[in-house]
Design a protein around this nucleic acid. Structure first.
Length: 437
RNA sequence: GCGGCCAUAGCUCAGUUGGUUAGAGCACAAGAUUGUGGAUCUUGGGGUCGCGGGUUCGAGUCCCGUUGGCCGCCCCA
């Protein structure tokens, strides 16, 4: 039957699927509002150059890009960060700081599909602009945690790995490495968890073997899993920036602790995220069982707004994708079963009864009730079954007998009781039933 | 871009060494049932067996190709 099929990696949302998606979005949106973030949206199609400027020319291979009829090179957005940088950068002089913005939007990447990854997906993006200190990170990490926890997920289900590219930078600098070598080492650190010693291969090819004692220090640093271990390690290294950076760490962890969120946080310098544009704290959310892809990721990108042509503006942000997150909710039994039920279902007799019912049906709907009825004449017995199947709380029965007497029979489908009311009282009775219930 | 596995009804699947008109459960619909429920019974609609080619007297079944899916690699903004 299906001559035309969905493009690979694209998703169709049948009503049940859309109900689940909406559930996620609604809670994300509400949570972001609770944290004082305001919502924005932006174009799905952007100049290709916007993404090249941020990520380099190679990015084009991962994009849905094409030339439009005006000869412009364009791409479907693969992420929100460059866009929001442009929006905020353009109006920063008029915006009250800190700028706390979020969006829920769809993104497109030309990639091979995998579990938890398609060619289109939705993300919650939340960012704070204009705040250089760790106060911004406290807000965002707390928001990220609550965006997961508000679905019923606990510290048994997920955790946030917290790391710091600055600290790595300063530490490696103190060990005498130049910037190129530092980036090389960070690349290896990012891959170390997965590949072990193999992760240093690229570094070795570019710069030669990393000095053994240096490598030992890198590996020891990578293993650091607490602020205490961090302080102990850095105490031995004399470097002015490191002391200030440690103060930032204490402020961040102290703030999160005061919010009662320490149980979700794992200090883990093994996470640096591959992205070259991160400039400070980075964090990623994972399921505790380690079965799924990352749930969310974020970090500080103080240079990006300027790099994209805006003013110098510090920024931190994160994104949660909907696919892996939905998988986790389903695995933990936290995805509700949505029944899209009317409030009231009408059981209707012949043509005269139908005309009588229509007046009330429309009035009830206009008053904000969800009302449904069989479009065509259906046997009474069947209609009661339809009423029960619909999930409605009340059935209004417009039989020929009732209509002839100017009455409507109201059946409570939950306890199967019923009583008759005058036609003119139906709206009030229904309203009272639902306001009491 | 690379590798492994897979593809039969809306869903879950059966289909013998290749052999009549491709089946079941669930779901959907009609009837039993012109006035009272999620049950039951009866009946029905729905399939180019992903698509194309090949082997064969004969292909859902075997072979090749292709498209799509799942899983992994690369990547992951």
């Amino acid at each position: 039957m299906a001559t035309f099929q969905t493009l690979p990696g694209f998703r169709e949302f049948y009503p049940d699927d859309l109900a689940r998606r909406k559930h996620i979005f609604d809670l994300w949106r509400r949570t972001a509002h609770h944290f004082g973030f305001v919502e924005y949206d932006a174009p799905v199609l952007e100049p290709l150059e916007l993404y090249k400027a941020k990520s380099g020319d190679e990015i084009e291979a991962q994009l849905f890009s094409f030339t439009d009829k005006g000869g412009r090179e364009v791409a479907l957005r693969p992420e929100m960060t460059p866009t929001v940088c442009r929006l905020v950068g353009a109006r920063i002089n008029a915006l009250k700081r800190p700028v706390k913005w979020f969006s829920i939007a769809e993104f497109y990447r030309y990639e091979r599909m995998q579990k938890g990854r398609g060619r289109c997906f939705f993300q919650l993006n939340a960012d704070i602009f204009g705040e250089p200190g760790p106060e911004a990170e406290i807000e965002l990490v707390a928001l990220l945690i609550q965006c997961l926890a508000s679905f019923g997920l606990t510290e048994q289900d997920f955790y946030i790995r917290l790391s710091d590219r600055n600290l790595w930078f300063y530490y490696l600098e103190a060990l005498g490495l130049d910037e190129a070598r530092i980036r090389g080492v960070l690349g290896a650190v990012d891959r170390y968890e997965k590949y072990g010693d193999e992760a240093f291969k690229a570094y070795t090819e570019q710069f030669g073997e990393l000095d053994a004692s240096l490598k030992a220090k890198v590996l020891a640093f990578l293993e650091i899993k607490s602020i205490e271990a961090l302080e102990a390690t850095l105490a031995a290294v004399g470097h002015a920036k490191l002391g200030a950076r440690l103060a930032d760490w204490r402020k961040l962890l102290g703030g999160l602790d005061a919010m009662g969120l320490t149980k979700f946080i794992a200090v883990d310098l093994g996470v640096v995220r591959g992205l070259a544009y991160y400039t400070g704290f980075v964090f990623e959310a994972f399921d505790r069982k380690g079965e799924l892809r990352a749930l969310a990721g974020g970090g500080r990108y103080d240079d990006l707004v300027e790099k994209l042509g805006g003013p110098a503006l510090p920024a931190v942000g994160f994104a949660i994708g909907d696919m892996t997150f939905a998988l986790l909710l389903e695995q933990r039994g936290l995805m509700p079963n949505f029944i899209q039920a009317p409030d009231v279902y009408c059981v209707i007799g012949g043509e005269a009864a139908r005309r009588a019912a229509f007046g009330d049906i429309h009035a009830l709907r206009a008053a904000g009730r969800r009302v449904d009825y069989p479009l065509k004449e259906v046997a009474f017995g069947k209609q009661f079954k339809l009423a029960a199947d619909s999930g409605a709380k009340l059935a209004l029965i417009y039989g020929d007998d009732e209509v002839a007497q100017g009455k409507v029979k109201i059946r409570d489908l939950t306890d199967r009781t019923e009583h008759e009311v005058a036609r003119g009282d139906v709206l009030a009775v229904v309203r009272d039933f639902f306001s009491a219930g």
